[in-house]
Amino acid sequence: MIHVVDMTLLAFLAIVAIAVTRMTNLFATSVLTGVYSLLMACIFTVLDAVDVAFTEAAVGAGISTVLFLATLSLTTQREKPQRSPNWKALCVALLTGGALVYGTFDMPHFGDPQAPVHQHVGPHYIGVSPTQIGVPNMVTSVLASYRGYDTLGETAVIFTACMAVLLLLQHEKRRDEQSTVEEKPDKEAMAHAMILRVQSKFFIPLILLFGLYVQFHGDFGPGGGFQAGVIFAAGIILYSLVNGLDKARQIIPPNVLHGLVAFGLLLYAGTGLASLFMDGNFLQYRALAEEATHGEHIGILLIELGVGITVATVMTSMFFSFSGRRRS
């Protein structure tokens, strides 16, 4: 049964991928890329990777599509059609793909419990982590504790991306010009659309509430700081799509936003440093309290909060930067 579902989804993926290649309407391509991510998330669920599926759906089908569409609204919606397939590129891709397929023939088969992946480090995480860390979701244990340093790096990556986007898209401050721009009603806002407005009023609180649930329930079920951050950001983005960017910016002023972006990363690294003062190594949360699992709990709570804050504010800030840019 699993195989049938898996194969069907994979076939859909292949169809979408080919459609993306052939279409020249960039608007449709971006939306299809979102569909691609959503299908991928379904496959991840079938393959037991619920946390990853969650994230892929929120990021690939959500945030990334929004950013693509925002870019298209500032650039162009059609790509120049190409006359024939690019043979050189096709050869490179075929060669690379061929090499990879050649490499698969010595691979352990799909689902094989004897595969090296399931023999060495993996069983340790599965067998020991629930008692050692005291968290039922093993993905959270590995993410936040065993490989917490990777996750710190990941938070730094998203922070770097935010710095890069701000460097590129932040408007230069021109004092004299600022005052002369007359207060025009935000045309991009969709506040006049009654159905949208009413629906969004209903949905936004639910989205934010769900974000909080995902943030604090990540120890027990799928979820965690990253997913929560993205969902929270999605709520804010929905608000600004409906009510206009200016209104959203009034609610979350840029200074607060940028402060929180930095705060999240500092909270994570600070938690790591705090364990140094408790005679532990960097990021050794179990030194934070008398009892090891209690310390792990405190540590994981704090760093997940750091990740959540940084991710939510970075995504929001990126969206503001993208949509704050007017077509010239």
Binding site: L152, A156, F263, L265, G270
Partner: peptide, 12 residues
């Protein structure tokens, strides 16, 4: 860790 902490401080 030192430059990683200094980076957000700079942005603040």
């Amino acid at each position: 860790v030192l430059p990683m902490i200094a980076a957000p401080l700079c942005s603040l």
